[in-house]
Design a protein around this nucleic acid. Structure first.
Ligand code: NAD
Ligand code: NAD
Lengths: 224, 224
DNA sequence: CGTATTTTGTGATTTGTTTCACATCAAAAT
DNA sequence: ATTTTGATGTGAAACAAATCACAAAATACG
């Protein structure tokens, strides 16, 4: 009973990510507390929106005193389940897969790629920090590391087949870089990232903005 | 007068990309015409929404006869300015930059990376199809190839500085892979792609869906 | 040729999101 | 201790997006 259940990250959640990144930076700069005004200014969001977003996630501040950054960050950590580590597998060690496997920021955020998989024996011989396995070890690794989330970085043609296999072995969430809409059962979370579309949309907006020349941006964009 | 003007791709435009990819596939399979119902089914969108989207972009079909795929595709091509080529520059030939520079699908969609740039002399010596230049040739290349759009794939710390330089030399649109909100004048289009956030949001949704277990998806997601 | 059928295109309605406005509280000032 | 000030938190209002519903148009069929 596979079906297309596309989802996009809710804007309010995207903004929470934004706030967090900003808070981490401010904290490193020695700042201890923020107001919705400060945070809004820093992230290009109105203070009202910041407070509404916090309200949605039941994040509380101190009347008049604003928000204590450390407290805010630890509240966010528990919202995002960042207190514990998350094991991830990556399928497809081509250009994209290799690049992602080396990306240190995932680890910094407690997202560990514990193993990668590829059908190409040459890729399997690659020396790398993270092991590259054949597909037949998929189940073993997913079970051993209690992996719930996978990165799909295989060619378009193989993406659905790989996805089916991942789900069969217990994967619940997928971030997919292949330019296809994966069909999955409704309880599976899929985030389709299509970089060609992202780039092309920039071109589209550049052209239309140049024509429109100025204030009518709203017609073409949606604010985050 | 730099400021934060974040924009996200409008959902209706995202869906148009979706329709197009689907239409290309159907066309290759020999299908000649579609109905909003077919297309919706194929992309997980309601037929009403398909027609509303087409209406927004003034795409017309034939009452009763549906849409002729070829006609639809060529209308879309002109909407997306795909009739002409688009020259792009890429700054930062690290893991991500190299991967993107090899991505053939950009070229397939008439988006040509004409040159790449890096401060690292080692990267400049790299043999690759696309030339790697020092930053001081940026202006020359941008002018020569009439480049309007750039890909930023440098570390977080350098992203703003590189962006400023790109804009100074006439770039109007940027897709940014560094996890920072770039500050740009309001007439510049920026698409900030943050892959850590995308991955983390999958984890977030997986956890919350598992808890919610079933139909209340709507609470956590926004449909595309 | 006219009637039934099917699908588009778009106002009207509903649903969702952002902005506004202000009561509420906590701290600072007097 | 009381007033003033300044920020939060959240209903209400305004705005935006998605769904519904149906008239209009094109085709099929008797
Ligand atoms: N390269 C990029 O910058 C880029 C950008 C955006 C999207 N993408 C998408 O990401 C995906 C990967 O792109 P790439 O450039 O890394 O391609 P690639 O060809 O370099 O790598 C694909 C890898 O997947 C492996 N593979 C193929 N079928 C497999 C299967 N059934 N099971 C396991 N592994 C399999 C191949 O052996 C290869 O190593 C593609 O869908 C592409 O469209 C790539
Ligand atoms: N690697 C990934 O998979 C990945 C994923 C998501 C986001 N990103 C982001 O993309 C960016 C690049 O990541 P990466 O992994 O390729 O890093 P990297 O360190 O491999 O590459 C960065 C490149 O930028 C060059 N550079 C640095 N400063 C520069 C400057 N001022 N001008 C020109 N070039 C400069 C460096 O010489 C290097 O070649 C980072 O911001 C990173 O956070 C990377």
């Amino acid at each position: 009973m596979k079906q297309i259940t596309k989802y996009v990250i809710k804007n309010s959640l995207k903004r929470i990510f934004l706030y967090r990144a900003c808070l981490v930076r401010l904290r490193m700069m020695g700042v201890e507390r923020v107001f919705s005004y400060t945070l809004g200014n820093e992230t290009g969001v109105t203070p009202d929106q910041v407070r509404k977003d916090f309200s949605e996630f039941s994040i509380k501040g101190n009347k008049r005193g604003g928000y204590e950054i450390d407290e805010l960050l630890s509240t966010m950590e528990s919202i995002f389940h960042r207190n514990k580590d998350h094991n991830i597998v990556l399928v497809g060690m081509g250009n994209m897969g290799q690049s992602l496997s080396k990306y240190s920021r995932f680890v910094q955020r407690n997202m560990n790629i514990v193993a990668t998989f590829d059908i190409d024996p040459f890729k399997q011989k690659m020396r790398s920090d993270i092991p590259v396995y054949t597909m037949n070890r998929l189940k073993e690794i997913i079970d051993r590391f209690k992996v719930k989330v996978a990165i799909v970085a295989v060619p378009e043609i193989s993406a659905q087949e790989v996805t089916d296999e991942l789900i069969r072995h217990g994967i619940k969430g997928i971030i997919n870089f292949a330019p296809v809409l994966l069909k999955v059962p409704p309880e599976i979370v899929v985030n389709n990232v299509n970089l060609s579309d992202e780039l092309e949309s920039v071109i589209y907006y550049v052209h239309n903005l140049l024509k429109a020349d100025g204030q009518k941006n709203i017609e073409y964009y949606t604010r985050l």
